[in-house]
Nucleic acid binder design. Structure first.
Length: 837
DNA sequence: GAGCACTGC
């Protein structure tokens, strides 16, 4: 044994993988069991409640039915659980002696290998191949028992899928062969106009125009690929809706979409982009006086409302991809609905994928729904027969199963984050390497938003002949990126989701099951170029009973500070009764209003103050806006702008590759600046600027160039807005106290003080928290700190921290802090928590 | 001593 170091290494690495797998299995199982238990307990409690409260004869017909229904559900759940247990036993059962046999064989293999490596390797590969058999359909139970042993042996390496249904597409599977195949050069010969006429929306053109002329608000329901985004604005233009110098607006949730769609439309209309057809996104306005068709991001339109609250320059507004329910689209719904009441000439089109259309129609006073067929191939949906405990392993196995048994075509796997993608990539590389020449080449490509762009671009390179591409992606591939040639989708059914707790003001990013809508969106990614297959790594039962219908809209999940400020600036006083499609939690609104009041943006009538109106100019959170405005008083606007821009960068600023952690950490430490993280960010930006914004400098200092560039863009925009609120840019020239006081003036809501054991307590909620280990203040433990964010990951952490003196709080927010609250702790060593505000 | 879903202004 000891003579074969390579093999031993491999065994060790296998041991390591096993542990991570087991951890995953454990947490996933715990999750499944808990969910099941919770559901059952709920049902049982309901039934007991009912029986306790009512005698049988007192129940109305409806109540009796409800009770019967609940009992039936409970019975079903129990039966299902039993069935699942049974399946689990069948799936995981492996006799002890067989396990030993296998293990021995492996050890023997080591010795044999030295003598006849080729023979042993081939034998091993053959074993792997035979175990990677793809099994579809419900298998006959008897058959399983007949070949019990064989079944047990291959269990470890395969997953049984059951085909449940076919997601219908408008194109039949075989159409590809009937359709004349065009080469690239031939395709170019087909004129743009012919392509336009071939879109599914084309036959509906006249009906659509008629419907728009007849109704003020129209809901358009259509799958992707119908051509609605590019064609409808052109039809409206041709029908004369832009007469009188009015524009047609169309909002998109993403910047790239706004840019690429407008480019396409400009090409189809034969005009230069930026003239008749243009787009407007943050940092980039590509429109002119002549522009009549304007694509923009929903956030841009939201901001435009501030300068043009009645959308006077538009004759038609199209809200596209409404089903995505971004924060901005949700707010736009309420705003445009309001406008239609006093601008009868404004046409409103809400464009959405299926399922949601009725909801939109109800919201817009029973607006008619116009349906347009899409263009997609059918996708077969497969579910696992039993729940998969370890979905990373299940993904790897499924990929290999597909690779070994299915016709060529690329695979897309949906994972939750960078870490999972990397683990999966390692496992796949390891296993496909061991399979060696027995399988065709397998290209494994990761993609997530923090991945450097050149690495991201690799997923779009055409797959080499006779090879197969596997793309391991986060949710980025669900809507933002479209990869061609995907035939197979593997969907474990999870994603990471941000949520905001307005009671504690804490954000958390946790893995949750996806919704049915999301699952179908993922499946749809398999049917773009041909009939596809989607493998869901959960049971059909789980899909039906455990997944919510729709993802909770963003507006109900995030902090609404800035949204509330802009609405107030638009003169909407009664936010609680604002016409939301789905209203946000009351506490979130109350928290936002309370904060605005404390910041001095609202007076006691709930009206915007002069300060509040100036704050609304900035597309940042109210606290940050206040900080920026306070920089005038402390004569440090240059520095504060940089800090605000650096804090607004959402991606990571530090680059920390796995193989160079020591160097990367050393580079980070070299930027540490007395006073805290905000000053460190300022330091980094200043040094980068001194290097002439050099890419090379970023690389040498382990910083993400992309993030810093974004910070520069944000800073430029903020600097432009400073002119609008008439604040000169001045530098504090090293006065860090002034800078920190300006920060305190904005963030006095986010104060924490040192408590025992290096822990902190937030002043507002008396919550026990820790300084994040990545902070430069992690080891300093100052008595009073201001934090930028409170985030829950593995613990409650303060991210981006500066040290302050408690007396500054009295100086910048005397209305909010009373001296006795703060003095208690500055004089005595470690006070007991008494008397909050 | 932890870790970075995805957008957008």
């Amino acid at each position: 044994m000891s003579t074969v170091p390579g093999k031993r290494l491999k065994l060790e690495s296998e041991g390591r993988l096993k542990i991570t797998q087991q951890l995953r299995i454990k947490s996933r199982r715990k999750y499944l069991v808990k969910r099941e238990k919770d559901k059952r307990a709920e049902l049982e409690a309901d039934i007991i409640d009912d029986e306790y409260l009512f005698q049988e004869e007192e129940l109305t017909e409806r109540e009796r039915k409800e009770r019967e229904h609940k009992k039936k559900l409970l019975q079903l759940a129990k039966e299902h659980e039993q069935a699942r247990e049974l399946e689990k036993v069948q799936r995981y059962h492996m006799p002890e002696d067989l396990k030993k046999g296998q293990a021995n064989e492996k050890y023997v293999e080591v010795d044999e290998r030295e003598k006849a490596p080729h023979y042993e390797q081939r034998k091993w590969e053959e074993e792997q191949m035979s175990s990677a058999v793809f099994r579809f359909g419900a298998r006959d139970k008897e058959k399983i028992h007949e070949k019990g042993q064989e079944y047990d042996l291959v269990l470890d390496d395969e997953i049984e899928f059951i085909q449940a249904l076919r997601m219908p597409g408008s194109k039949p599977d075989q159409e590809d062969e009937n359709e004349p195949k065009l080469t690239e050069s031939e395709k170019k010969k087909v004129s743009l106009q012919e392509t336009r006429r071939s879109l599914p929306i084309f036959p509906f053109r006249d009906d659509l125009i008629q419907a728009i002329e007849k109704h003020q608000v129209l809901i358009i329901e259509g799958e992707t690929g119908s051509g609605k985004t590019t064609q409808i604005p052109q039809y409206l233009y041709e029908a004369g809706f832009t007469r009188g110098g009015k524009k047609i607006g169309c909002t998109q949730p993403r910047r790239v979409a706004a840019m690429s769609v407008s480019a396409r439309v400009a090409q189809e209309m034969g005009v230069k982009l930026g003239n008749e057809v243009g787009y407007s996104i943050r940092f980039e306005d590509c429109t002119s006086e002549r522009t009549v068709i304007k694509y923009m991001t929903d956030g841009t339109l939201h901001r435009e409302f501030l300068s043009e609250p009645d959308l006077q320059s538009y004759s038609v507004m199209i809200i596209d991809e409404a089903h995505e329910r971004t924060l901005h689209t949700d707010i736009l719904f309420g705003l445009v609905k309001d406008i239609t009441r006093f601008r009868p000439d404004l046409k409103l089109l809400i464009s959405s994928a299926t399922l949601d259309a009725q909801k939109f129609s109800d919201f817009f006073d029973e607006a008619p729904i116009f349906r347009i067929p899409g263009r997609r191939y059918p996708v077969d949906i497969y579910y696992t027969k039993a729940p998969e405990a370890d979905y990373i392993d299940a993904c790897v196995v499924s990929v290999l199963q597909i690779h070994a048994t299915q016709p060529l075509g690329d695979i897309l796997v949906f994972l939750t984050g960078q870490e999972e993608i990397e683990t999966c990539q390692e496992l796949l590389q390891e296993r496909s390497r061991r399979l060696g020449s027995k399988i065709r080449e397998l290209l494994i490509l990761p993609v997530y938003s923090n991945l450097p762009s050149d690495m991201q671009a690799r997923i779009f390179h055409p797959t080499p002949r006779n090879a197969r591409k596997v793309v391991l992606a986060t949710n980025i591939a669900e809507t933002s990126l479209t990869i061609d040639n995907i035939i197979y989708v593997i969907d474990p059914g999870f994603c990471k989701q941000n949520s905001f707790n307005s009671r504690t003001g804490m954000e958390s990013l946790i893995v949750v099951p996806i919704s049915k809508a999301s699952a179908n969106q993922r499946a749809g990614r398999a049917g773009r170029v041909a009939a596809g297959k989607c493998f869901r790594l959960y049971t059909a039962w789980a899909y039906k009973h455990e997944l919510e219908d729709n993802t909770v809209p963003e507006i109900q999940r995030i902090n609404l500070g800035n949204a509330v400020l802009t609405l107030k600036a638009l003169g909407i006083d009664d936010l609680v009764h604002f016409d939301f499609l789905d209203p946000p939690p009351l506490e979130t609104l109350v928290l936002a209003l309370e904060q605005l009041y404390a910041l001095g943006a609202l007076n006691h009538h709930g009206e915007l103050t002069k300060l509040g109106r100036r704050m609304a100019e900035f597309p940042v959170d109210p606290m940050m806006a206040k900080m920026i405005l306070a920089s005038e008083k402390y004569k440090c606007s240059e520095e504060i702008l940089t800090i605000a821009a650096m804090l607004s960068v959402n991606g990571a600023i530090f680059y920390r590759p796995k193989d160079k952690t020591v160097h990367a950490d050393a580079a980070r430490h070299s930027f540490f600046t007395p006073g805290g993280d905000h000053l460190m960010l300022l330091n980094i930006y200043t040094q980068w600027a001194d290097s002439d914004f050099s890419t090379q400098w970023c690389y040498e200092n382990f910083l993400q160039h992309r993030s810093l560039k974004r910070a520069r863009d944000v800073r430029d925009q903020l600097a432009g807005l400073m002119a609008r609120v008439e604040i000169d840019l001045v530098s504090a020239a090293g006065d860090t106290v002034g800078i920190r006081k300006a920060i305190t003036a904005g963030y006095f809501y986010h104060v924490a003080r040192l408590s025992k054991g290096g822990q902190y307590k937030t002043v507002k909620h008396q919550q026990t928290v820790m300084i994040h280990p990545n902070s430069s203040m992690f080891e300093d433990l100052p008595r009073w700190v201001i934090y930028h964010e409170l985030k829950f990951t593995t613990k409650e952490f303060l991210c981006q921290v500066i040290e302050i003196e408690s007396k500054w709080l009295l100086e910048v927010a005397p209305h909010y802090y009373k001296p006795h609250v703060l003095e208690d702790s500055t004089n005595k060593k470690m006070p007991k928590m008494t008397g909050k505000s």
